[in-house]
Nucleic acid binder design. Structure first.
Lengths: 254, 254
DNA sequence: CGCAAAATTGAATAGTCTCAAATGTAGTGG
DNA sequence: CCACTACATTTGAGACTATTCAATTTTGCG
């Protein structure tokens, strides 16, 4: 029997709004599930049978075309809620980007519980509204930004989201996060980059080659460094923000 | 004093879940506002002060870059809810595409009301989840589809959404909708096209010229007809769906 | 009917993609 | 510890799609 008391995301997931008695009740219907990197939890078109809170690890939400083209339409990190409550089917696939732990509920159980706990539904509404804002912001990137702007925007977004996580989540199991924590070095903060080039391309609506070229350009211009495959150092965040908004300006002057 | 009793979207907006007494209370804090075509209700970055239900008319939600590039990140039609409850600022602008009527609430009033009417919040959660699904589906289009696929997808989406509206909404003021109702002719249904070419381009992340070229192509291939500026007839919806999924296939064979 | 705005069409360009090859990295077993 | 393999990333050259800029045609309206 797992207990919410010792849960690392206890104070950040939607469960935050529940009092101890309610939390105990929720605990009854949930169970901790471990998944391995690369494992797909649900596929586009599947029936919506379960929902979950992420305890640890990262996930991608993807939508695909018949011929294999794929777009990452969302990323989920610890304390995020995943799944599609109050709907019959999933419109996208969910795949683990790292080994991960989830607090899983059957959709029926969760919905039943949520409907008699308005505070929980309210919290879920708030997080859903934030996700919608985030998705719409990304639509501007996908519809209108150049490759350089996209890559710069991505680096900023990822650094902000991962900083937020590292600041907020208590590290119960320190060995998991320890090595990846954001480090402030003289030359700028280093961030873990939990995506391969292909995944970055799928997030940005570009090809792997274009992403690589843009990263190399930013490196040459001293905006970033790439210490190893899984990390980025942002050396000049101000200028990176410029690029994220309008790459054209600096292209000419620099 | 306006009354919900005579409201055309009474049975389709989020208010549907309220009983007569609750509805009367909601009526107290709302007021009908008329806006003209082209009028911008809120701008990106504005404080979130009001929310509303659309009674009649259409709106676009847009996000822009400094240099003027614009992306339409959402469209709202009668019975849709617009605005950003439970958040401090708007992340996007809202502009009327036609003369329109709204049932407007101050955000504070609405939030206060919603928090003591869980059924309303639940309904709002459901519509927000649907919007999120829709936004994510659009991300696949913006990130991965070709121009032909985008235009085909757009025609299908618009026909489906406008059909849904025409099927569902009671026409209190018939003169407003009458001329735009979907007509099933021998050669296929005609749909109102409440967007100019520039707006279609802003929805699809393309230029006005590319949209025009693709529409002409579809016309030449007998998939659609363009009776006048504001209407489309879909002649071969099956083949249009093919194009929406993978334009490449038919390009070679046709 | 005539005008202004919107839409279409054309030609040239630019940016990203595709295909191919080279380089780099991590993991494995000798 | 190194060689070897498998895989990811980088780099290059050329092709192609969509954009840009310009001109023309169409549409809707006074």
């Amino acid at each position: 029997m797992t207990s919410c008391e010792t849960c690392g995301v206890r104070n950040h997931a939607i469960c935050t709004v529940l009092d101890p008695a309610e939390l105990a009740a929720l605990n009854e219907i949930g169970r901790i599930v471990t998944v391995r990197k690369g494992q797909t939890l649900v596929r586009e078109g599947d029936d919506s049978l379960a929902v979950a809170n992420i305890v640890d690890g990262a996930f991608k939400l993807t939508s695909s075309l018949e011929d294999g083209r794929e777009q990452i339409i969302g990323m989920s990190f610890p304390a995020d809620f995943i799944g599609r409550p109050f709907g019959e089917t999933h419109e996208y696939s969910v795949t683990a980007l790292s080994d991960a732990r989830l607090c899983v509920f059957s959709r029926a159980d969760f919905e039943h519980f949520a409907r008699r706990h308005p505070d929980l539904e309210h919290r879920l509404l708030e997080t859903t509204l934030m996700e919608l804002d985030r998705a719409r912001r990304w639509m501007l990137l996908l519809g209108r930004k150049t490759a350089a702007e996209r890559v710069a925007s991505f680096l900023i977004e990822i650094s902000e989201r991962l900083t937020a996580i590292d600041d907020d989540i208590e590290d119960i199991d320190d060995s998991r996060h320890g090595g990846d924590a954001v480090q402030s070095i003289a030359r700028g903060p280093v961030f873990p980059l939990p995506f391969g080039r292909q995944q970055i391309a799928d997030i940005l609506g570009l090809t792997i080659e274009t992403v690589s070229r843009q990263l190399t350009l930013f490196k040459k211009r001293g905006l970033i460094e790439l210490p190893d495959r899984g990390h980025v150092r942002i050396c000049d965040i101000a200028r990176l923000r410029q690029y994220a908004q309008s790459a054209g300006k600096d292209f000419r002057t620099a």
